[in-house]
Design a protein around this nucleic acid. Structure first.
Lengths: 209, 209
DNA sequence: ACCTGAACACCGTTCAAGT
DNA sequence: ACCTGAACACCGTTCAAGT
């Protein structure tokens, strides 16, 4: 079992506390995979062999447990966005980031909904993760817009909403597994400047690039 | 209070049963408005002055109560789709139908999610409503595709998913009320044939219109 | 034929009692 | 300092007892 991440700014935990923390995170990961992000917390505590009070001591809200479980994945997503910012094609980079984010938001059933509401809930432990993803998307979006490949009126908040909505639609469509792969190109094309509009802009006296 | 719809194929109900039925629907409508589509059924029964068993007798599942509440609205939406099929501009008709459907799916918080899952649950009393909406969308989509305004590879199932996803995203974004109005044009543009692609097709030897 | 409300299983959350 | 598990409030659902 790989070591679970330690909660922030913490002096060493007592051995039994540490063990319970790790067990809870590992058990929760399995439970979320099996039953979705709204799996029973009581059941997770039982399966981890821990009193329910112990779960709430370490993770006061469901979001805190979820944050501990997906923390590594959020970090990886953020690293990927840094890579994509350094690639050549701004539009392709944005689309690749959208695809990666949709995949991430589809890790567990119900995760997309949690991420969406965390975006607007400053108290949630997932809020900072959402804002980081939001900020990464904003950078990639800005670059694509400056190179005149994406409509200037689209903002990062709507980009985040669209991504989360596609992830949500995909997780709600059990019978067709590749829903996200089909919807993403459609949605991405809606963001792009239309051929004629882009041509008109580029035909203007002062060329931008 | 306007008369609630009677359940299908039913001989006259006993007077007290009829009264309870109507009260439950009226109370549920208010509760759904106030607290969303997942309002407490127990609370609805209490507020309607009725035992909880009576609620379950009339409406065995939450979806049955929801279906009774939104039945008229579903009918109106269907009538609107018939009108739109008779208009001149197939693309504008499709977009107008999408807008109307998104608005309808946003009537109560949580309704979009219910409609989405009802689409894939044949046992739900909302299933037939969803299929009707699905079929109406398919007709409008087909017409738009035949007039070469919408990509031929889009199917009605994905159209339904996109619409529901936009409605869901809008209801999850409390602070900005016009989310749906901003996202719809973006999504709709993703469905359209691009200017250049359409021009290429229309430049072919055999003109379509 | 229909209604009532107690009963059951489940859930999230708290907290007094333990070590 | 941390853990345990009983306790509480809530929910959906069922069903025996009533009229």
């Amino acid at each position: 079992m790989k070591p679970a991440r330690t909660p922030d700014q913490q002096r060493p935990m007592r051995a039994d506390a540490r063990r319970n923390y790790d067990r809870l995170v590992a058990t929760a990961r399995v439970a979320f995979q099996e039953q979705g992000a709204d799996a029973s917390l009581d059941d997770i505590a039982k399966r981890a062999g821990v009193g329910s009070g112990t779960l709430y001591r370490h993770f006061p809200h469901r979001d805190a447990l979820l944050a501990a479980v997906i923390g590594d994945s959020i970090d990886a997503l953020h690293a990927r966005s840094r890579e994509l910012l350094a690639t050549d094609d701004p539009a392709a980079a944005l689309e690749a980031w959208m695809r990666a984010t949709i995949t991430h938001a589809g890790t567990y059933r119900g995760l997309a909904a949690t991420l969406m509401s965390s975006m607007y809930d400053e108290g949630s432990p997932l809020h900072s993760s959402c804002k980081r993803a939001h900020a990464a998307g904003a950078e990639l979006l800005k670059r694509a817009q400056e190179s005149d490949r994406v409509r200037p009126e689209v903002d990062a908040a709507d980009l985040f909403r669209l991504i989360t909505a596609v992830a949500w639609a995909a997780e709600q469509s059990p019978e067709s597994e590749d829903t996200a792969e089909r919807l993403l190109p459609l949605v991405f094309d809606g963001l792009r400047t239309t051929g004629t509009a882009r041509q008109a802009r580029q035909a203007k006296p002062a060329p931008q690039d």
